[in-house]
């Protein structure tokens, strides 16, 4: 199946592992969870952290079970620690 390149913006502690931006290749009809899995393969050291991350698109959170739409940039959101 054809694959597509997805850009991912990273924040906070995740930048140490992936930089501010990284890319993964996923199959065309993948859901967002596949992006997390691809990142885990890229760096198994962060598997646990990634499992507590959410993904945002256009400034809204998406469900990991949803199929990735046409967007090319995802935002990887680790657990909040403001305040």
């Amino acid at each position: 199946m054809e694959k597509r390149l997805i850009k991912i913006k990273c924040f906070a502690g995740l930048r140490k592992f992936f930089g501010s931006e990284t890319t993964v290749l996923v199959e065309q009809d993948s859901n967002y969870a596949k992006v997390i899995e691809a990142l885990q393969l890229l760096n198994p050291e962060v598997t646990e952290i990634l499992s507590s991350c959410r993904i945002a698109v256009n400034e809204d959170f998406v469900q990991l079970s949803e199929t990735i739409k046409q967007e090319d940039i995802l935002f990887l959101i680790p657990p909040s620690s403001g305040g």
């Binding site: 906070a12 502690g13 945002a56 935002f75 959101i77 680790p78 909040s80 620690s81 403001g82 305040g83």
Partner: peptide, 9 residues
């Protein structure tokens, strides 16, 4: 704000 907003310390 502390629990949900994407801000990191």
């Amino acid at each position: 704000v502390k629990n949900e907003v994407p801000i990191w310390k």
